[in-house]
Design a protein around this nucleic acid. Structure first.
Length: 554
RNA sequence: GGGCCUGUGGCUUAGCCAGGACAUAGCGCCGGGCUUCUAACCCGGACGCCGGGGGUUCGAAUCCCUCCAGGCCCGCCA
């Protein structure tokens, strides 16, 4: 409904003005839609904007009357108002199965996110990547794209060599019940301390690096063992966060299957290739001053070579690739894109998010200074359990636990996704543990209230008579859901959905407070119940697209 | 030294890419609301020279320049 109406108005403006853009936006408190186009026309026609707006409003009004759209000039602005039919259709559309789902598209998309190095548990910075990535994935599926989500496993890195060395020379025993990724972090931190104290260990680590590159089976087995165990820990954490990948792709596979060598051979033939001991690329065409090294002078490859092989594979198997990367990857991400273009491959679109730091400074796995995602989940779940127990003492322990898990997940995911990715943030326990307004639980709560009304009402027949301003405002917000999904995928900005869901919850809560549903009668009661059903369904869809469980009671 | 990102009431934040009608909301603060559909809620109030300065424009939080502050990056690491 929103789309159709928007396009109707837009087309009418374009026809009436002959302009290329309608400059049409939402009208805020003034109208449902509005355009300031009279300003730009004023210059061309050398007339006062208000006079132009008045004339245009009349012409547009005549043209849009049939569509039930009222037009008025307000000074230089032209305002558009939808009618009752729009509100009715909006509510009816929301009740259809698959509301918010956009038409199927053929473009195959591959989305890579998280891809953290397996040398310690995921921390609160990593899960910003997971949550942005997973929310985007859910939005893409909702928007009708065939999508595959992948985790790129860096199993050939120096960090892994250090962990492997640690297990061979200083294998701290795992503590009772310790997750493998946490155990690996302790071994990694200890190995790094050992290296700082004794520089000769570096040579041993270098030897491991050469062995893995040369395909030494014993070293390969050891690396794979450590990485797999760390990944098992990651998978458990991501499961708790409702984050899913379709496939884990191992970096070393691109060495083993020859893809990396093929990419290197192709790079060697590029006119931008430089062969001065190393193999490197001159990327000045993309504005990079320094050469991009692909192969070391000792013949071993660098990370970039494997990543190029991976992205070449993506390019050939998908129509569109999207990578979610931390701000520290901005430069190498651009270099990767530039090189892929030189190779004639599709470059990925890159979603960058800025860093999460701690009040005392930046997080570092190596230094052991981080808040792990597991710790965060545990703390937030405890707090949520205490809250639920206080509010719903009549529920069983199991029921309260279930609600607490859902509430904790909502609090964590929403807290992270609601902030624009380009803002760097400082992790704050107080905010993480806040379940009030502008939080995930706040939105869940609105949904639970809607469910409660519907449950008490039992079966009823749909009706569509709306007159209260609260009803109309809520219906109009419901109508914006598909457009929001569309914006999230076209702009790659999942926080827009977080903002949308919160506004929907705000409007529902105001409606809930001022408009009695169960106590009203006749047509009014049926209509209000219908609106509650539409709001409940839209809140549920929005929550689920955010990866949050839409629990029916809390 | 260079590049990218950010700077919006005490704190957090939307809007910025595609310039327009009194700058969004939350926390905190002040004041109200539970014999009424779940108060994880709702309503009212105070709090802003949108980092500073210049420019473009009829019009700038939004575009351009410059300065300041913070984050990230600039390796034959990943």
């Amino acid at each position: 409904m929103y789309f159709t109406t928007y396009r109707q108005i837009e087309a009418a403006i374009l026809e009436c003005t002959g302009e290329e853009t309608a400059d049409l936006g939402e009208g805020g408190e003034h109208a449902d839609f509005a355009t300031p186009i009279a300003f730009s026309l004023a210059k061309k026609q050398r007339k006062a904007p208000a006079a132009i707006a008045a004339g245009l409003a009349e012409a547009l009004g005549a043209r849009l009357a049939g569509a039930g759209i009222a037009v008025e000039a307000a000074g230089p602005y032209i305002n558009f108002h939808v009618n009752d039919e729009y509100v009715k259709s909006a509510v009816a559309a929301a009740l259809e199965p698959g509301f918010g789902r956009l038409p199927e598209r053929g473009e195959r998309v591959i989305l890579e996110h998280t891809s953290a190095n397996p040398n310690g548990p995921l921390h609160v910075g990593h899960i910003r990547n997971s949550i942005i990535g997973d929310t985007l994935a859910r939005a893409f599926r909702k928007a009708g794209y065939p999508l595959e989500v992948q985790y790129y496993v860096n199993d050939m890195g120096r960090q892994i060599a250090i962990v492997s060395w640690g297990f061979d020379h200083n294998p701290l025993p795992a503590e009772e019940g310790e997750k493998p990724d946490h155990h690996i972090a302790r071994v990694y931190v200890a190995a790094n301390r050992a290296i700082e104290a004794d520089g000769t260990i570096t040579e041993e680590v270098d030897r491991l690096m050469q062995q893995i590159e040369a395909g030494d089976p014993e070293t390969g087995r050891k690396f794979r063992e450590v990485v797999s165990r760390c990944l098992d820990g990651f998978k458990l954490t991501m499961k708790h966060l409702n984050v899913a990948h379709d496939r884990f792709v191992w970096e070393s596979d691109f060495v083993r299957n020859g893809d990396m060598e093929r990419v290197i051979a192709k790079i060697e033939r590029l006119p931008e290739a430089r062969h001065d001991g190393t193999l490197s690329l001159d990327l000045t065409a993309c504005g990079f001053e320094k050469d991009y090294v692909i192969r070391r002078s000792d013949g071993t490859s660098v990370y970039a070579a494997r990543d190029l092989a991976y992205h070449t594979w993506k390019s050939r198997n998908f129509d569109r690739a999207i990578d979610v990367l931390g701000a520290d990857h901005k430069l190498i991400g651009s270099q990767l894109q530039c090189t892929l273009r030189l190779l004639g491959e599709k470059a990925p679109e890159i979603v960058i998010f800025e860093f999460v730091s701690l009040p005392e400074g930046s997080m570092s796995t190596r230094a052991g200074t981080f808040v792990s995602a597991d710790e965060l989940i545990a703390e937030v779940t405890n707090k949520a359990f205490a809250e639920v127990s206080e509010r719903r003492p009549e529920l069983s322990g199991e029921e309260r636990k279930g609600i607490a898990r859902a509430v904790a997940l909502a609090a964590i995911r929403y807290d992270i996704v609601r902030v624009s990715p380009e803002k760097s943030t400082v992790f704050n326990w107080e905010e993480a543990l806040d379940f009030e307004r502008q939080s995930g639980p706040y939105i869940q709560y609105s949904h639970a209230r809607a469910c409660s009304i519907l449950e008490k009402a039992g079966a009823f027949e749909y009706a569509f008579a709306f007159s209260d301003p609260h009803e109309i405002a809520l219906a109009k917000q419901i109508a914006r859901f598909p457009a929001t999904i569309d914006r999230v995928v076209s702009e790659l900005r999942p926080h827009l959905l977080a903002v949308y869901a919160r506004e929907l919850a705000d409007l529902f809560n105001s409606f809930y407070r001022y408009v009695p549903v169960l106590k009203s009668e006749g047509e009014t009661r049926l209509s209000r119940l219908t609106l509650v059903a539409a709001a409940q369904k839209t809140l549920k869809d929005a929550l689920e697209t955010l990866g949050i469980d839409a629990i029916r009671t809390m």
